[in-house]
Write a protein that binds this DNA or RNA. Structure first.
Length: 915
DNA sequence: CCATCCTTGCCTTCGC
């Protein structure tokens, strides 16, 4: 528990609690330097005065870090204060509270807004604890025993962030005159540094969850990691909700077993469920005593929207948003540096090109950053951002994290932010320093996104942020961990079971599941007994389970981790000039398969011509002219979050009541009024059901606002239930707002809607049957097979194609289904499909809401503004891009003619005029 | 002229 509070004592710079930190005012370097010098002088003068009065140095107060008690031999506190003062910062209350807690040996979770200075706060808190524990003091004044090899572990989710953090932690050490060593270990760490670390680890190590697991897999793990006293898990919100977070839970349990007094702190951005985040980090035995510190500093946050200048010409559908190009150019022009976030990689390529076309003078100042670009070019972009030499970067989520401490002035978000947490995260990329305001500007790409923009701002201001939950008992991660621990010195099952149950994810692991896992690493379970490769772990004469086979040990180490990604086709320059052999990045096999040599495509911000494809590599050269193809990647499809969807419905509610206070709503007003006139506005407590008859057949449009994944589940469910009573066939389409069913025959929608379509019934059974869940589970099994070590992805440099990998994972799936149906990995695949892909819980809730809702029936004579994007979505699957464009133009022409009333001439459908 | 689907990490081993 906290040490007794000291009575308030003299302060050199009194400061009311909770007040903002003083920043060195930005009025020129000379003035700033003077301000810093003055601050340092003030601290030093206070120290000198205190020393003169015969007071021991640690009591010298310039808002000292708590825990640094008089006589505790901690000049550290004063040094840290001085370091802060030199930057014109004063510590926040949360930073003091953190230092107090850490000094007292407590664990917990620190929630702080991005850019609040949490990194330094946690670092200094750890230093204070460390010093209090008798580790070496600042240079020259060694006390106590020499430092143990490794005392502080700092985990980050990204290599780039690890490198940044390593530097950030080192700098204050040097300035504070400490001789403690900070090291970084990740896949980026050079071989020489790696070798040095193998001889002796630094006192503080910044690393990734995967690299930590690798350290745990070494025979001498207990010696090298056994003395770790403090662990800081940075960006815990990023790890919490996935298997990487579970891997961290397991690693922490291991470290705590070696050192029961282990102090663990998570650093997290805003989450809707911070209590759970703490529980998952600390585990069932420690969660209750764990602290939850809220570092809610008054960070100024501004969310605004670029309103389309000509709303009459703003489109009804689509997500590219190129109509906003001139305005985006103007915004970039007006700021020193900007990040332009888009939602997909191909959109990033297109926007980068469009911006360069609009402003050729920005060549060299504009950059592109997404996950399929070569690591070197991404590193170049990140360095350019840090150095402030870039005007703007068009990027995907790849710049959500990492590259900390950027001098970014503006953040633009093109298209839907999809979630409140994401929006806040991106806003935090600007003004990334304590006390500086953050600003994000939303750029809607179509009319309904105007509503979403108003909703996103309202939800962010109300603090409705999404929750993230730890996975429950993933057996693939446990299996991997068992082999890791068997390698890392071996284990005795009883002791390891207790340790594993100390993790939140495995708190309820029963004996049967545990025995299954042991059996699986021991002999591959019932189905694989005949294969020696799956006899990975065996007890020795002493009853300690180890990995006897060196070859299997090596394989395992190379497969550690829970991220599974497809091997893409590598794109490289062909022959000739200087750039020959240079790597540009990766594209998907399916994209390259459609190209022939000589075809052009746009990639990595360049126009390229395909020369040849050979062994998973597409060789290219620079090209000019020609209409290029643009690669598409089949990434994950993030659905609109429940929080944001609820905010959209609330905004529509406002509109239905005639309130158009938000400027975005006012701008969308003509469209919303048209929707109300032709159909009705969806609103809270009501379910809008539109029907339309076209040449194609009978359409039904429903708007549950539950995100695209749930809508896909609902649409399949409805189609399946309807076809059960009469042999009808439906085609379906979904987006984040709603879903549509189309039937060639008349299914009598009114009867269908009244006949228990939304009943829960045997929901699970119906959903599984309607979606061909077996096939989904089979696909899901690929990742599970990789993580559990069934599938070996090959040695580095030896590229195996996705198809091969899928085939062998599929083989295991079949073998288990036929010969080992009790295999828990099969259950896991099903559970992951239901929970993650279908969001079954959200689907149930949506269905219940639809049952309870008042039905708004709207027979349409022509597609409504809400129905139109769904209609387009459905056609997209069958038509080529050009044909689709023709169709959309024709449809909008028709709509414009239909809507020949005054309300419509100023309404969005006249976007048709562009056609 | 239309355009959609994100991100994250990672090895070894030996003999000279």
């Amino acid at each position: 528990m906290s040490p007794p509070r000291k009575p308030p004592s003299r302060r050199a710079t009194p400061r009311p609690p909770g007040s903002l930190p003083r920043l060195a005012p930005r009025r020129g370097a000379a003035a700033a330097a003077r301000a810093r010098a003055a601050a340092i002088e003030a601290v030093d003068a206070a120290r000198a005065a205190a020393a003169g009065a015969g007071v021991a140095e640690p009591t010298v107060e310039c808002a000292p870090l708590p825990g640094c008690e008089p006589g505790s031999s901690l000049p550290m506190a004063a040094r840290i204060e001085r370091w802060y003062a030199a930057r014109g910062w004063a510590p926040f209350d949360f930073q003091r509270a953190l230092a107090t807690a850490v000094a007292a040996g407590e664990s917990g979770l620190l929630h702080a807004t991005t850019g609040a200075g949490k990194t330094y706060a946690a670092w200094f808190a750890a230093l204070a604890r460390w010093a209090a524990a008798g580790a070496p003091s600042p240079s020259g004044t060694r006390r106590g025993p020499p430092a143990p090899p490794l005392t502080l572990l700092w985990l980050t989710p990204m290599r780039a962030l690890a490198a940044d953090t390593g530097r950030a932690l080192q700098a204050p050490l040097a300035e504070l005159g400490c001789d403690w060593r900070v090291g970084v270990r990740s896949g980026d760490t050079a071989a020489s540094e790696r070798a040095a670390q193998d001889r002796r680890l630094p006192t503080a190590l910044v690393t990734t969850p995967e690299s930590l697991s690798l350290l745990l897999s070494r025979a001498e793990a207990a010696q090298t990691l056994g003395a770790v006293a403090i662990v800081v898990v940075d960006e815990w919100h990023e790890l919490l909700g996935n298997k990487r977070g579970v891997q961290v839970q397991l690693a922490l349990a291991r470290l705590r077993r070696w050192n029961p007094a282990l102090v663990v702190w998570g650093l997290s951005a805003t989450l809707g469920n911070l209590d759970h985040a703490r529980a998952a980090l600390l585990g069932p035995a420690h969660a209750a005593q764990g602290r939850l510190l809220r570092g809610e500093v008054p960070k100024q946050l501004q969310i605004d929207t670029l309103l389309p200048s000509a709303p009459a010409r703003f489109p009804w559908a689509g997500h590219l948003g190129m109509q906003m190009l001139p305005q985006v150019v103007a915004e970039i022009d007006a700021s020193a540096t900007a990040l332009v976030f888009v939602n997909t990689r191909s959109q990033a390529e297109l926007w980068y090109q469009a911006l360069l076309d609009a402003r050729p003078d920005w060549a060299g100042l504009l950059a592109l950053h997404h996950g399929s670009l070569d690591a070197d070019s991404r590193a170049w972009v990140e360095a350019g951002l840090k150095a402030g030499t870039l005007k703007a970067v068009v990027c995907t989520s790849s710049l959500d994290l990492g590259v900390d401490f950027l001098p970014v002035e503006r953040v633009l978000q093109i298209g839907s932010p999809k979630g409140v947490a994401r929006l806040l995260q991106r806003a935090g990329r600007s003004g990334h320093a304590p006390g500086r305001p953050s600003r994000v500007t939303l750029v809607p790409t179509q009319s309904l996104e105007l509503v979403e923009a108003a909703a996103a701002r309202a939800a962010a201001e109300a603090g409705h942020v999404e929750a993230r939950r730890s996975p429950e008992q993933p057996m693939d991660v446990l299996v991997q961990h068992l082999v890791t621990v068997a390698l890392g010195g071996g284990f005795r099952p009883d002791a390891l079971l207790a340790e594993v149950r100390g993790c939140h994810a495995y708190r309820a692991l029963d004996e049967a599941a545990w025995q299954w896992a042991l059996d699986f690493v021991g002999r591959g379970g019932a189905a694989l007994v005949a294969y020696p490769d799956y006899r990975r772990v065996a007890p020795d004469e002493g009853g300690v389970w180890r990995v006897p086979d060196a070859r299997l040990a090596r394989r395992h180490r190379m497969g550690i981790g829970t991220i599974v990604s497809d091997a893409g086709i590598s794109v490289r320059y062909w022959g000739g000039r200087g750039a020959a052999g240079g790597r540009l990045g990766t594209v998907e096999e399916s994209f390259v398969a459609r190209l022939r040599p000589g075809d052009c495509f746009l990639f990595a911000g360049r126009l390229l011509e395909l020369v040849r494809v050979h062994e998973m590599t597409a060789w290219v050269r620079r090209a000019s002219g020609a209409r290029p193809a643009v690669p598409r990647w089949n990434g994950g499809r993030m659905p609109l979050s429940s929080e944001l969807a609820a905010a959209v419905v609330a905004a529509l509610d406002d509109a239905a009541d005639g309130r158009f206070d938000a400027p975005e709503l006012e701008r969308a007003r003509p469209l919303l009024e048209l929707q109300a006139r032709w159909s009705a506005l969806p609103r809270r407590g009501a379910l809008l059901a539109e029907t339309l008859k076209t040449r194609e057949g009978h359409h039904l449009f429903l708007y549950p606002f539950a995100g695209r994944a749930v809508h896909l589940g609902l649409a399949s469910l409805f189609a399946w239930r309807l076809a059960r009573t009469r042999p009808l066939s439906f085609s379906i389409a979904v987006n984040d707002y709603g879903l549509t069913l189309l039937c060639a025959e008349d299914p009598d929608w009114d009867a269908a809607l009244g006949a228990g379509l939304f009943e829960a019934g045997d929901l699970l059974g119906d959903v599984l049957a309607s979606l061909n869940a077996g096939e989904l589970a089979r696909r899901r099994f690929r990742e599970i097979a990789r993580v559990s070590g069934l599938v070996f992805t090959g040695y580095p440099g030896e590229a195996r194609s996705t198809r091969q990998l899928q085939a062998s994972a599929g083989l295991f799936y079949e073998v288990f289904r036929n010969h080992d149906p009790a295999n828990l990995l099969l259950d896991q695949a099903e559970q992951e499909v239901l929970r993650q892909e279908l969001e079954l819980g959200r689907l149930e809730a949506a269905l219940a809401a639809m049952r309870a809702a008042r039905l708004l029936r709207a027979p349409l004579r022509r597609p409504s503004p809400f129905a139109f994007p769904l209609l387009v979505e459905r056609m997209r699957e069958k038509l080529s891009t050009e044909k689709l464009a023709d169709r959309i133009r024709r449809m909008l022409d028709e709509l414009e003619r239909a809507a020949d009333a005054p309300a419509v001439s100023r309404a969005a459908p006249s976007a048709a005029r562009e056609g």
